[in-house]
Write a protein that binds this DNA or RNA. Structure first.
Lengths: 161, 161
DNA sequence: AAAAATTAGTTGAATAATTCAACCATTATG
DNA sequence: CATAATGGTTGAATTATTCAACTAATTTTT
């Protein structure tokens, strides 16, 4: 936990080139958001693996979605998604079955418990995101950034990697 | 590497509640940016540890800066900063000395090699950030987001954790 | 139709990062 | 002067990630 003095020193540091870098801010906010959010999610049994929350919410929303779709969407290695899905299955939050039209593919479904947890998590992360950013930007600024990111993300997933 | 078909499927997925979550976009862009950037930085000897690039650039810009200031600024555990600084020292990019006014504190300095690498890295990450986001948002949108994040980050470091 | 290429998911080991608390010396506070 | 807090260190445990090899299945090419 940092001290008041190092807070003040940190607040004074001129960022130089980092100051104009969107990738820097993305990184530094990701660190801050994750730290805050992980504290809230740990009691619900979530670990720090990338994409766990998103995977659960996507499976809850899209019965039959496939691991490969989740990996591609979130930009994470398929072996991570496999581990995440295995964990969700082990916790009995998710089930899977072989796809009728492709025996290699797995279709994923949420269980009643998984659906309940997904609801809970949705509430939690919306409240968290709102609360986290509320003190840092106005509602209007928040909406502007989300809109720009939403379009950017849609383009990202259109073009792929 | 994902396929054309899973790209198309991923592009179609309705994000539900995630669609309006700034923390989701921050996470998902961090993953994408890191993946692209890490490919560029690996040849220069950088690993995936958080804050390595920022640390080098901050040390280059602020002769005498302290580990604790860097940790606080970036929101990372001090033991990570210690490892990062040790690595930079081992690579002879950074040196340190005990602070005159506080024997516990270490002042960090960049070496000539470190300064040269910092210059190189600055060029690289600016080009990368510009290139990465160029296809995803307009210059104007980029500047809007950076300005909002800049103010938000300044507030974040004012209030601390 | 057969061969070749690619894909969906699995697996696992190696590697790296992170966490977190205990620690010591030093400084600040009461 | 005693107590509390800080700056940095250390290390082990834990977790995550990477990455490629693999198999079965599907798609593409010949």
């Amino acid at each position: 936990m940092s001290t008041r003095k190092s807070q003040e020193l940190a607040a004074q540091v001129d960022l130089g080139v980092l100051d104009g870098l969107l990738s820097f801010y993305v990184r530094v906010f990701e660190i801050a958001v994750s730290r805050h959010l992980d504290d809230r999610l740990a009691p619900l049994g979530f670990t720090g693996r990338k994409g766990t929350i998103s995977s659960l919410l996507l499976i809850a929303r899209h019965a039959g979605i496939r691991p490969t779709t989740i990996s591609t969407l979130l930009g994470i290695d398929k072996s991570i998604t496999v581990k995440t899905v295995d964990e969700l299955r082990r916790a009995k939050l998710v089930t899977r079955r072989s796809a009728a039209d492709d025996k290699r593919a797995q279709e994923l479904f949420v269980t009643p418990e998984g659906a309940a947890l997904a609801d809970k998590v949705e509430t939690l992360i919306v409240a968290h995101s709102d609360e986290f950013f509320a003190g840092l930007m106005t509602r209007e600024e928040h909406d502007i950034v989300v809109n720009i990111f939403r379009k950017a993300f849609n383009r990202l997933r259109e073009v792929g990697e």
